[in-house]
Design a protein around this nucleic acid. Structure first.
Length: 869
RNA sequence: GCCCGCCUGGCGGAAUGGUAGACGCGGCGGACUUAAAAUCCGCGGCUGUAAAAGGCGUGCCGGUUCGAGUCCGGCGGCGGGCACCA
């Protein structure tokens, strides 16, 4: 090991040659397998699993990746230094639509395109100097991964977690393909431009709703998740308590004798003035059959539904079907409307309208002249005069105009109504969930094949495990519209595993969210012959720290939580929650530039003149500097990480990304910021060399510098534990300034002082090592301070004795305002401190002639005199 | 419309209810240099003063407290998420 340490030639005239030095250390780490861990380690060390969301291999890494992987790497290296075995793997979320788009546009096979991108991006990531165990790398498009996923699918199928049913999709009639939401632009297919149709297809589903209660109940236990993410998930799952109410139609409509409604406010039933159904509701269908105007209205609603902008600003509209229902309690006859704001997917697809208690219902009633009867009296209002005008009241209160409920509180009324409905067989109390089952069918080639065959006589038959994986055929073409798997007879047509007759493979592939719902478990034993080796998962799961973007706050994290529970139920893992800790980072932003004619310009195409004016280099014309935006190709405001690393080095890029601001917020990439970070690394290197030249034979003393070192150890440790990396950077700046000052003021013969400075630098380098690993390793090696290899560095521990100060500066307030400070010995008695405070010149002046009504002393901090004249 | 987050110098930001503005970026002054760059040293909320003292200051208004950037109530602005969720 020792002889592999790079030679450290100190030449103080040469600036820090980051390119050579970073490459050298990376090679050493790679050659020695520095970051490799066992599937089931036996050395008795505690485990720590750090994972960043794995990247989609789009072609190149971007600044968002740099930020993401730097944050995770700091945690991984820090935990390793404090004595953990750290699992820190990397892989590729390699299935997905862009590969098929590339195939159509550039005639390159999705597999070839994907693997090429992976090779390029792996090299780019490796230049960042991440402490990753690359022996665990895999891509989800590899049959050795998706074959295991097919086994999981079949397990879930046996467990009753898989379902096949009809579902609506966006259908492009020209491309003969199902469109993703992002492929629908203004109601038209993005490529064909044809108006999108809604079509019903048989689709595969995971029954995630079976887990809805536990996915919700486990959220409070995820105490190392951001509150924000837990709140978003909770709302998405959307548990509500309410009632189903059956309304009998006054006259049956065909087969339909009644309409069922879901409500969270059964107490307001007497305020009902209409019933509204979704445009897709069977009763709406019945209305359209006989009434062309109703049909026209429903068609309008469908068209509106595809455009998001239209829904946003859509006014509440409806159509009176002429059907009537009977109120379950007072027997009133109430009209049935079709309304554009009622959703078929939620509840029963029908509501009762209570205008006084719901703003949407009120708007609707006012528009169409329906009754508005107040039924809940807000506290402090008078029943005789209370009116609903343009604002509905949805709070609690006393029931009025409500028959047998009058005088009861609205919360009691909920119970009473549910009881009455149940007794009368007109309804019952129910718990409703907003979350729907997870549709996993995709009519695409570049995804994991669903391992079933369709047999005309046996129906849906799972592919026997011995025949897995069902591998994607390679000889496909993308010249024709539709899914190439549908046209590939040699692949598609098979013998039925049960009866041996002619059958056909399922040609739907799985949603790529499935691929990312268990990859973290596969990383524990990436070569296992089963999806996950139990012993490895038992050791490493759950992920202790997961790091990624807030954009995955709901779907990816919820699906992964569902999968983990399902895998637990199948005895594959022994945890319920995949991610014990979650950190969500902000976006990377940058200024964007636009020429007067509207063209977006790359940062490299503009120049900032000394007078501050920004011009286009090519034309010399003025440039409009636009707002700080998320880096995006369309606005051309991206900064290429490779260019930055080439110019400044990986350590400098990492340092800037960490120092700019708190990592959960959006950061702004600035040229001055990265240049400043670069100056810091150069300064640090120069100082290290200056210190290296001093004689190295003294015994260190314990001076003010050593005390500063130990304070820094304590504060940096706390900062890293809290993900306050920008604060850790600030504390390290302070320490470097202190070391620099001490070194400058050192007499040539002061061997003890030199030893103190040297020792301070040793600690400094170890504290910064998680953030700038190459430079830290290089400096320690050059100073012959810590022998060996950066990953073997130990984290310094603060000596509590050196954190104790002998004197304290105490602030003195008079009347709540700061009027002076005093220096006192730590441990001085309260009387002594109060006397000293009162004697302070300025304080004494302000206290003169006043009466002290109260004096407060907070030891070590502050004295406060409350006075009156 | 609903939900969440944020608001502190020119800028990014720091601050267990206890000296607001650490640290950095930019700026200004000085040293070095023929000069520039780099580097090194110093200054730095606003106002006020010869210098002090003092006054004002964490989006706005109010409250709790000896003491509020921090806690509570209200208002405003900015950003993000969403499937109009009955």
């Amino acid at each position: 090991m020792q002889d592999q340490t790079p030679s450290s030639t100190v030449d103080r005239t040469v600036a820090y040659d980051f390119a050579a030095i970073e490459a050298r250390w990376q090679r050493l780490w790679d050659d020695t397998g520095a970051f490799r861990v066992e599937d089931v380690p036996t050395d008795g060390k505690p485990k720590y699993y750090v994972l960043e969301m794995f990247p989609y291999p789009s072609g190149n890494i971007h600044m968002g990746h740099v930020r993401n992987y730097t944050l995770g790497d700091v945690v991984a290296r820090y935990k390793r230094a404090t004595g953990y075995n750290v699992l820190h793997p990397m892989g590729w979320d390699a299935f997905g639509l862009p590969a098929e788009n590339a195939a159509r546009e550039r005639k390159v096979h999705p597999a070839e395109w994907t693997w090429r991108n992976i090779d390029a991006m792996r090299a780019e990531l490796q230049r960042m100097g991440l402490s990753i165990d690359w022996t665990r790398e895999f891509a989800t498009c590899d049959p050795s991964y998706y074959g295991q996923q097919q086994k999981l699918f079949l397990s879930f199928m046996r467990m009753g977690l898989v379902d096949r049913r009809l579902s609506w999709v966006n259908w492009d009639p020209v491309d003969e393909t199902v469109l993703a939401n992002e492929q629908v632009v203004d109601g038209r297919g993005w490529r064909s431009g044809a108006p999108v149709e809604k079509r019903q297809l048989a689709q595969w589903f995971f029954r995630i709703t079976k887990f809805a209660p536990e996915l919700l109940e486990a959220l409070p236990g995820l105490d190392r998740w951001p509150d924000r993410v837990r709140a978003m998930q909770s709302k998405w799952i959307g548990r509500s308590e309410g009632a189903r109410v059956r309304f009998a139609l006054a006259d049956p409509v065909g087969e339909i004798g009644n309409v069922e409604v879901y409500t969270t406010r059964p107490d307001t039933l007497f305020g009902m003035s209409f019933l509204a159904v979704a445009p897709e509701h069977p009763l709406a269908a019945a209305a359209t059959a006989a009434d062309p105007a109703a049909a026209a209205f429903v068609a309008e609603c469908r068209a509106l539904g595809t455009s998001e902008a239209a829904i946003e600003g859509a006014e509440k509209r409806g159509y009176d079907t002429g059907f009537k229902v009977r109120h379950p309690f007072d027997g009133r006859v109430v009209p049935v409307w079709i309304a554009n704001f009622v959703l078929m997917e939620y509840g029963t697809g029908a509501i009762f309208g209570c205008p006084c208690g719901d703003q949407r219902d009120l708007d609707f009633a006012r528009k169409y002249g329906l009754d508005v009867v107040p039924v809940v009296l807000p506290p402090g209002e008078d029943a005789a005069s209370f009116q609903i005008d343009t604002k509905a009241y949805d709070g609690p209160g006393e029931m009025i105009n409500s028959g047998f409920l009058d005088g009861v509180s609205s919360s009691d009324a909920v119970k009473t109504v549910i009881q009455r409905l149940t007794e009368g067989g007109q309804g019952n109390g129910v718990t409703n969930w907003r979350m729907r089952d997870w549709g996993v069918s995709r009519q695409r080639y570049w995804g994991c094949p669903i391992p079933v065959v369709h047999c005309p006589s046996c129906g849906v038959v799972p592919v026997p495990e011995a025949e897995l994986p069902v591998v994607l055929p390679e000889d496909v073409d993308f010249d024709l519209p539709g899914n190439p798997l549908d046209r590939h007879d040699a692949w598609r047509v098979v013998a039925c595993p049960t009866c041996g007759g002619r059958a056909e493979r399922e040609t739907d592939t799985l949603d790529t969210f499935v691929d990312s719902s268990w990859y973290f478990a596969r990383f524990c034993s990436p070569n296992a012959v089963e999806p996950v080796a139990n012993a490895a998962a038992a050791h490493w799961m759950p992920v202790d720290q997961y790091v990624g973007g807030i954009d995955h706050a709901i779907l990816h994290l919820l699906y992964a939580r569902f999968f983990t529970r399902a895998m637990h139920a199948a005895d594959i893992v022994d945890v319920d929650e995949p991610f014990a800790g979650l950190f969500t980072q902000g976006m990377v932003t940058h200024e964007s530039y636009r020429a007067p004619d509207g063209r977006w310009l790359y940062p490299t195409e503009i120049e900032r003149r000394p007078d501050g004016v920004v011009v286009e280099i090519a034309t010399g014309g003025p440039v409009n500097v636009s707002a700080i935006d998320k880096m995006s190709k369309s606005k051309r405001n991206t900064i290429d990480p490779q260019e930055i690393i080439g110019r400044y080095g990986a350590d400098t890029a990492r340092w800037f990304v960490l120092s700019d601001n708190p990592p959960e917020r959006d950061m702004e990439w600035t040229e001055t910021g990265i240049a400043g970070a670069h100056r810091f690394t150069q300064r640090l290197y120069r100082l290290a060399q200056a210190i290296a030249e001093r004689p190295d034979h003294g015994t260190s003393k314990t001076g003010v510098l050593t005390r500063a070192v130990h304070r820094t150890i304590a504060s940096v440790t706390i900062a890293l534990d809290q993900f306050a990396f920008n604060v850790a950077v600030a504390r390290l700046h302070e320490l470097l300034n202190a070391i620099s000052d001490a070194n400058r003021g050192l007499a040539l013969a002061d061997d003890a002082g030199a030893a103190e400075v040297r020792q301070a630098f040793d600690v400094f380098a170890r504290l910064m090592a998680p953030m700038m690993p190459h430079l830290a390793a290089e400096i320690l090696s050059q100073l012959h301070l810590t022998q060996g290899n950066a990953p073997d560095l130990t984290w310094p521990v603060a000596d509590p004795a050196l954190l104790v100060e002998t004197t304290a500066t105490i602030a003195v307030q008079v009347g709540g305002k700061l009027r002076g400070t005093i220096e006192v010995a730590v441990g001085a008695s309260e009387e002594t401190v109060l006397a000293a405070a009162a004697a302070e010149e300025n304080v004494a002046r302000l206290l003169a002639g006043k009466t002290i009504v109260k004096q407060i002393y907070v030891p070590g901090r502050i004295v406060s005199f409350a006075v009156k004249a």
